[in-house]
């Protein structure tokens, strides 16, 4: 229950951090908030030879809107900072709503969005929220970068497209157009536990009152955060009502691959998904002014 020995590096610039990762490759891990990596190290499930601690890299700690409404969040922005940001609450309320479900306040004090997404736990809320928000991630490496869609980032449980020398440095969330409504709902055994099922829904009510845009994504629903594109597409052009929500929920249940746990069988998880998709869509529609 104590971590094994490691070499600790705490650079204060992004460039220095990327250079360290390039030099040490697989032997090194980035340390962000440490709320997943440190438990793994305490269990000695993770035993990195080198820890590149990002907590002194001030350039990665930001959460700001561009003039066009695009939200940019640095990898080291702490959850507490994001959930307390009044502009985020007003303009991307699903982030704050879902963050309230992420573990406990004590974990959110230290936990970071970048660390969470890089960890890629399919039971985690934020990866699913990123799919629903159509977010993109800026991946940095020494001397280069690329931007990937959230939908292309997650490969499997704890697996992403990040190369050995890459860091998820920035999250880019496009503005929600007017008429949008969002909702995040989950069911967990106990407050703060990983969800047995969670649903993120983003809708847009068009000028004719019908659904103009929809994105549904689920957590604890498969090996990665799971998008439900067929359920989302089925809503387009439809009235935002119980009938279309029920059809979308029935479709979403067929698009997931829940793996089951000691707490919930896959059958029960699918049942939860159906109920929660319906409720989340209904709530998002209510909020879509």
């Amino acid at each position: 229950m104590k971590p094994g020995p490691f070499e600790w590096q705490a650079p204060d610039s992004l460039e220095a951090a990327l250079a360290l990762k390039a030099r040490h490759g697989e032997a090194a891990r980035f340390l962000a908030g440490g709320q997943s990596l440190v438990p793994a190290m305490n269990f000695r499930v993770a035993q990195p030879a080198v820890l590149v601690d990002l907590n002194r890299v001030a350039a990665l700690d930001f959460c700001q809107f561009d003039a066009d409404g695009t939200l940019r969040i640095g990898a080291m922005a702490r959850y507490r900072r994001i959930e307390r940001d009044a502009a985020v609450a007003a303009r991307v309320p699903i982030l704050v709503e879902a963050l309230a479900e992420v573990a406990h306040p004590q974990i959110r004090t230290r936990g970071t969005l970048g660390g969470n997404l890089s960890h890629a736990d399919p039971a985690s809320e934020m990866p699913a929220v990123m799919l629903a928000l159509d977010a993109r991630f800026r991946l940095r490496r020494a001397g280069g970068e690329r931007v990937v869609a959230a939908a292309d980032f997650f490969l499997g449980p704890l697996a992403t497209v990040l190369a050995e020398d890459e860091m998820l440095a920035e999250v880019i969330i496009p503005p929600l157009p007017s008429g949008s409504g969002t909702a995040f709902l989950e069911v967990a055994r106990r407050r703060g536990d990983y969800a047995m099922m969670g649903v993120a829904a983003v809708l847009r009510r068009g000028p004719d009152g019908r659904c103009a845009e929809a994105r549904i994504a689920l957590c604890s629903a498969g090996p990665t955060p799971m998008a439900a594109p067929r359920a989302s597409e089925a809503l387009i052009g439809r009235g935002l009502n119980a009938e279309s929500f029920a059809e979308a929920a029935a479709l979403a249940v067929t698009e997931i691959a829940p793996m089951g746990s000691v707490q919930a069988s896959p059958t029960y998880q699918r049942h939860l998904a159906g109920v929660l998709v319906g409720r989340a869509l209904s709530l998002a529609a209510e909020r879509a002014a």
């Binding site: 229950m1 709320q35 440190v38 438990p39 507490r80 230290r110």
Partner: peptide, 22 residues
């Protein structure tokens, strides 16, 4: 010692945090 029980909670710059996860 994996951040679940809360017994080791301290304040880090005034905010509650797990001292077993730092």
């Amino acid at each position: 010692e994996h951040g679940v029980c809360g017994a080791c909670t301290i304040l880090w710059d005034g905010e509650p945090a797990r001292s077993c996860l730092a």
